[in-house]
Amino acid sequence: MKRIIKLTINGKTIEAAVSSNQTLLQFLREDMDLTGTKHGCGLGDCGACTVILDGKAVNSCLVLAVQADGSEILTIEGLAEDGKLHPLQQAFVDKGAIQCGFCTPGMILSAKALLDEKPNPSELEIRTAISGNLCRCTGYQKIVEAIGEAAEVVRMREES
């Protein structure tokens, strides 16, 4: 049995029919073709499927699509504005925070949720915010540096 859900994804209002046992991750990837959100484990262990749901970073593999009815969702595809990379994306590129890239979308969104709440995070706060996003390539150091740099860019942008 399908249910109709209405939600906002990356600023666009969407109405869609979904099965009750469809996860938000499956809905985004398969129905919406938003494949930037990755499937790494399906059990909430790796964070590759992280999206921002009503302002909070969540594992979309453990959210039912029907539970997202009426919500606002930001995926990695919705972060760049007018074709210009978000400061987090730019910092990830510039600082070498990306290797295989599979954890990158989730990592960036966890960082985005952090900066939205804490514009000036400490290193420990950064590491804690991404502690549910596993990365096997980088050892995290350049990711932590990139988030710190992006925080500064965002702060400066907001001051001016």
């Binding site: 995926t75 990695i76 595809e77 990379l85 994306q89 590129v93 990306i98 890239g101 979308p105």
Partner: peptide
């Protein structure tokens, strides 16, 4: 490949 990976 940085921008492609950073934007999904």
């Amino acid at each position: 490949d940085g921008p492609a990976k950073a934007t999904g």
